[in-house]
Amino acid sequence: MVGPSRPQFVLFGSSIVQLSFGNGGWGSSLSEIYSRRADVFVRGYYGWNSRRAVQVLDEIFPKDASVQPSLVIVYFGGNDSMGPHSSGLGPHVPLPEYVENMKKIALHLKSLSKTIRIIFLSCPPVDEVRVRSNASAYFSELVRTNELCKKYSDACIKLCEELDIKVVDLYSALQTISNWQTACFTDGIHLSSEGSKIVAKEILKVLREATEWSPSLHWKSMPIEFPEDSPCDLVAADGKRTLNPSTWNFHWENQWD
């Protein structure tokens, strides 16, 4: 670990997390936004469901770690909500078990420290037309419907309300633009840069509005590393002073709130 130490943000989930640093992903956006404020760690696993996640909770989030995360953002549900395969194999997890698994994840994370903060992301919708047209000879039929996605999303949101955990309703958030089916996904399932922009915006909204969290984890409220002025900084046009660039963000593609 390199220093100085910073708060740790961990993104934990399936492919929407694993892929979050590519293609203008929401993970890379958070990393840029929190540059010099927090370190963003990705623990994303393509194809995983909540059942697989529960099996390795102690390995990914050991209770005896010397440093515990300040924030964990959790996403599982898209693979769980797939229709079951006749063989009994595959990622489908029945809804009651999905809820119980997500509860186990939440309670494990809460047990790590008194100051840990948690945000769940609910199951997003899919572009059913593209999902059906992207059939592959390598896989059995992928049964993904928005009816199933909605059930798992609603169940996640309800659980978060019961456990007092912050949640982003991805099922609704991604449908706030009229052409969401084509704009928000690369393949009907995984997020495009436009879809990721919505996810990042919703996460920042939660962090901004969580006024009861102390200290605040919204980027504008967090201290920045090495903020002091230095004679080594760029010289101003008047030639008499330097300009401190530690908080400059004019180069951002998106001006985040």
Rank of each mutant, 00 (worst) to 15 (best):
Tyr75Cys: 08
Ala135Met: 08
Cys123His: 00
Asp127His: 07
Ser70Arg: 10
Phe120Val: 03
Ser111Pro: 01
Pro125Tyr: 00
Ser28Met: 01
Asn49Tyr: 06
Val42Thr: 13
Ile119Cys: 07
Phe139Arg: 02
Ile119Gln: 14
Ser122Val: 01
Ile73Glu: 01
Met82Ser: 15
Ser28Phe: 08
Val126Asp: 14
His108Ala: 09
Gly44Ile: 12
Tyr45Lys: 02
Leu71Glu: 11
Phe76Tyr: 11
Asp80His: 11
Lys63Phe: 09
Phe21Ser: 06
Ala137Gln: 14
Pro125Ile: 06
Asp39His: 14
Asp64Arg: 09
Ile119Leu: 10
Arg144Ala: 03
Phe41Ile: 15
Leu57Cys: 00
Val72Gly: 05
Gly44Glu: 02
Asn23Trp: 07
Ala106Asn: 13
Ala65Cys: 06
Trp48Thr: 10
Asn134Asp: 09
Tyr75Glu: 06
Tyr75His: 15
Asp58Arg: 10
Leu30Met: 11
Asp127Glu: 11
Ser86Ala: 15
Arg144Lys: 09
Phe139Asp: 12
Ser81Met: 13
Gly83Ile: 03
Gly22Tyr: 07
Tyr75Leu: 06
Val67Leu: 13
Asp58Glu: 06
Val126Ala: 09
Glu97His: 05
Ala106Val: 07
Arg130Met: 07
Arg132Asp: 13
Gly90Ala: 10
Phe76Gly: 02
Thr115Gln: 13
Gly27Tyr: 08
Ser20Trp: 00
Tyr98Asn: 08
Arg117Leu: 01
Ser20Cys: 13
Asn101Thr: 03
Arg43Gln: 11
Gly83Tyr: 07
Asp58Cys: 01
Leu112Cys: 04
Tyr45Trp: 12
Ser66His: 06
Leu95Pro: 14
Leu71Ser: 00
Ala135Phe: 04
His108Glu: 00
Glu59Trp: 02
Asp58Lys: 11
Pro69Tyr: 03
Asp80Ala: 08
Leu89Val: 06
Gly22Cys: 05
Asn23Leu: 10
Arg43Phe: 06
Gly77Phe: 12
Val56Asn: 11
Ile33His: 06
Tyr138Asp: 15
